[in-house]
Design a protein around this nucleic acid. Structure first.
Lengths: 301, 301
DNA sequence: CGTATGTTTATTATTATTAAAGACAGTGAG
DNA sequence: CTCACTGTCTTTAATAATAATAAACATACG
């Protein structure tokens, strides 16, 4: 019970390799030095040293920590299974929703999911709480969580919000000086789009990552933590749903590529109005595709 | 240890009053009926009934639950102290940051705060996790939280984000038909502004709530959960900092009132460009005020 | 045969407990 | 003396254990 002693085990083993690197009879550095070297607190170092003393690998005598013998395989400790942190959890959870096609309204079982994802239940709770800010999950009155996002209404509002943010990026981008990095990136992206267009019949599946890359590039010119935070959610939801909707995928993607190219063209001409119009057109198409995909999948409420 | 039995205690007491309302010798309804009536699970009802049986207030005999006697004062149970939920916590926490003038970089002590706010530590953790989406607090590498928001950079990015959202609202508002509610609300707000302007020398403190009301009205025309979520954070941070900055408060507020009036005027003329320009000017002033207030308070990084 | 109850299982919210971090004070070598 | 080092103690956060609850299932009664 209580927290895992991963840090202790790791420090202990690291200390072993450290001893083996030194000569028998040498003195180990001070506890303070060791703690800052291994990046753990002195408390951990002291417990590890105490164990090494017990194993007679070192001899503690006041300030002196004399190395007495080499370490054996058995001296090393096995730590508990490492649990994932909250960052890894995010992508794993969203991937799960995506792949398993979890419908809105599903009750999320914290105990079960924590096993599946091998995280502490506690970590999942926190994670859900943070997602609840975006309404993707909501807390039920008496405990428990429900997957709530990914409904039609949600999609509409998210699309609209995306449009507001991205039009702002586009307007800003059109005013940037020619020496800005973005122009080179746009040139590269243009090449990638043209190349994909040539082999669209076979490789239309490759559009999705390219789409994400393109929109990420556009938004990268605005350095704003709120925009970036939303970008993550937005790109997730869009690509999630696009994977569902397999109807006319080839044609949709071809159209989208052409819209992207038009936007790049307009941006390069530095005509803000033209660029905005092109962006607006493309975002409207995206929104429509998203809504269609919702209807064909009957996940809407 | 483990969770509180609040639900049991409450159901138990409710059941007592229910019995007292009926005649001695009557039969209580079925467990299912009671559970749906009191809004708790059958398990809770069964535990409560079992206790009432022990106290000889009712007699359980197969399906029959016969009322045997009236309840006494002592039969009622006292529940544990009620802990606050996560919603109440939000306002209490933000209020604490505001009043105590907690500087950025402060390490937030979950154990201590959970006592102060009388919530479970667990609840605080979840709450911080949700705030971390907006960067107001951030998680430290090995556990713990730091108050991170409310720095200069944060303020700049928040202002910019606010501008993007609010200009969008303004553009939208200018296109609304005359029969829309918003026009009447704007008329009312105009009167309130004019009235405050007349007595500005004495009542300039009254501007802050009016400002919030005005901006809330503008944004109310966009029904989007993301916009609304942000509105909450934005209005908090702005009014938080404005309370700090007492320099030239009267003049600042008078200027802001005039800017509001100009914006109302422009909106009513349905000239989108004019309205946008007026809004942009006002938001720029707001941003400047926010930055100034940060510098005078030396909380910036 | 349907409704009510008895029983079991699953799941969550919360506490108790331990690991780790950090503070403080004492100690001894230079 | 003093400064780095160690011993001890306090505080804090992460996790396991646990009680409360919900829900599912099985059984019995009318």
């Amino acid at each position: 019970m209580a927290r895992t002693n991963t840090r202790f085990v790791e420090a202990h083993n690291e200390l072993l390799t450290l001893c083996d690197k030194m000569e028998i009879g040498d003195f180990l550095p001070s506890e303070n030095a060791l703690s800052s070297q291994l990046g753990v607190s002195r408390t951990v170092i002291r417990s590890a040293l105490a164990r090494l003393d017990e194993l007679a690998i070192i001899a503690l005598d006041g300030r002196e920590k004399i190395i007495k013998r080499r370490s054996a395989k058995d001296d090393r400790l096995d730590g508990p299974p490492v649990l994932l942190g909250i960052e890894e959890l995010e992508s794993r959870f969203l991937d799960w929703v995506l792949r398993m096609d979890v419908p809105p309204g599903t009750v999320l079982n914290v105990a079960q999911l924590s096993k599946d994802f091998s995280v502490a239940t506690h970590t999942l709770q926190e994670f859900f709480s943070s997602l609840s800010r975006f309404g993707i999950v909501v807390r039920r009155p008496r405990g428990g969580w429900v997957l709530h996002g990914f409904t039609k209404n949600y999609a509409v509002e998210l699309s609209d919000f995306r449009t507001v943010l991205e039009l702002n990026s586009v307007r800003h981008l059109a005013t940037l000086p020619p020496e800005h990095d973005i122009w080179a990136r746009l040139d590269d992206l243009e090449q990638e789009h043209l190349s994909l267009l040539e082999r669209i019949d076979e490789d239309f599946h490759d559009f999705s990552p390219l789409d994400e890359k393109f929109h990420a590039a556009i938004n990268s010119v605005v350095t704003n933590r709120f925009v970036k935070e939303f970008q993550k959610i937005i790109s997730l939801v869009f690509h999630y749903h696009f994977q569902w909707n397999k109807t006319h995928e080839r044609d949709r993607n071809e159209d989208a590529i052409r819209e992207h190219l038009t936007l790049i063209e307009a941006l390069r001409s530095r005509d803000a109005d033209k660029a905005e119009a092109a962006a607006r057109r493309h975002l409207a198409t995206s929104k429509q595709t998203l809504l269609t995909s919702l209807e064909t999948n009957r996940h809407a409420t």
